[in-house]
Amino acid sequence: MVAPHPLIHRPRRLRRTEALRRLVKETELTVNDLIYPVFVMEGENIKQEIPSMPQCYRYSLDLLLKELQDVVNLGIKAIALFPLIADEKKDNQGTESYNPNGLVQRTVKAIKQEIPQLIVITDVALDPYSPYGHDGIVENGQILNDETVEVLVKMALSHAEAGADLVAPSDMMDGRIGAIRRALDVEGWINVGILAYSAKYASAYYGPFRDALASAPKFGDKQTYQMDIANSREAIKEIALDIEEGADLLMIKPALAYLDIIRRVRDYTHLPVVAYNVSGEYAMIKAAGQQGWIDEKKVILETLTSMKRAGADLILTYFAKEVALMLHH
């Protein structure tokens, strides 16, 4: 028998068995951490797979309600709703975005009637409604800030009236959180929360999402309003402003290449921090999994656990249903 080396510290003692490893596990991913993004479109009996997002679909409202019943049965508590708007309903002023009978408004009402316990989060931004694919009103090639905020306020109010639990401004216009909070309060929607996309970067990871909603910018890019990918301190500035203006939850988008930002925000605030595991992150894992280059399920769990470990309280992810199924087994 080999004499033991005189070590005092043997960290492997706590890795020896599965039971020991679970006993000292620092980060736990649960179904309660998941927000499931869904895409809705006009029509009936439609389920369209998004080519760049395998196993993700656009649904007409009737089939979306069936999908969401499955989501609830898996224990997922919240969804984020994104609309595919017909081209003929798009205009530079985003007027369809606050139509009380618009696609989002009708969808929210139907969900709340059929599945009232499901938390519904609505996207507040003009890009799905704009012929230019930008998040704001365009004038002479520029994105107007204050004029856009006026429309975002109308949109948020229409979502609140339809029954949304949280509105989620994803546009990155200056001052929109405060303007929306004031308007919601004045109109009596004091219990409708704001999930602020506070640190949203001008990322190359959004391509598949823009395919899903046909919302890619028709000119230029979004760098005059979304954040520079190189900046970290600026994220804290944006976070501080959104907290001051009344945000209830704070989003970092994307997540995987911005784990350091999630950590900095977590250390800065006690508000809930949300990570958006975006479409490009999803597509890369799916593509590698289809090629057999990775163990897809293990990589999904490792990726989402890294976001929790970095400090995210919640994760908005297209993997939500898959993860819920894995966690149930």
Rank of each mutant, 00 (worst) to 15 (best):
N73M: 09
K154A: 12
S198E: 06
E322F: 03
A110Y: 11
D127P: 08
E281P: 05
Q69W: 06
N99I: 12
K297M: 07
A275Y: 09
Q93P: 01
G289K: 09
A202D: 14
A283M: 11
D123K: 06
I315Y: 05
E44F: 11
Y282D: 03
D295L: 14
V278R: 00
R106D: 08
E150C: 03
D248A: 02
Q48K: 15
E96Y: 06
T317H: 09
S232L: 15
E322G: 03
Q142E: 14
K321F: 08
P272L: 00
D91Y: 02
Q290D: 10
Q93C: 06
K222M: 12
R210Q: 12
A86I: 11
A312N: 05
E296Q: 13
V186P: 01
M1K: 09
L29C: 11
V323M: 02
T269Y: 08
Y197C: 05
T305C: 11
L61I: 12
V151E: 01
A162S: 09
G94M: 01
A19T: 14
Q55V: 14
A204W: 12
I79Q: 02
D211I: 07
S215R: 07
P116C: 06
G193I: 05
A80K: 03
L152K: 04
K112G: 06
E139Y: 05
L81I: 14
I137N: 01
Y205R: 08
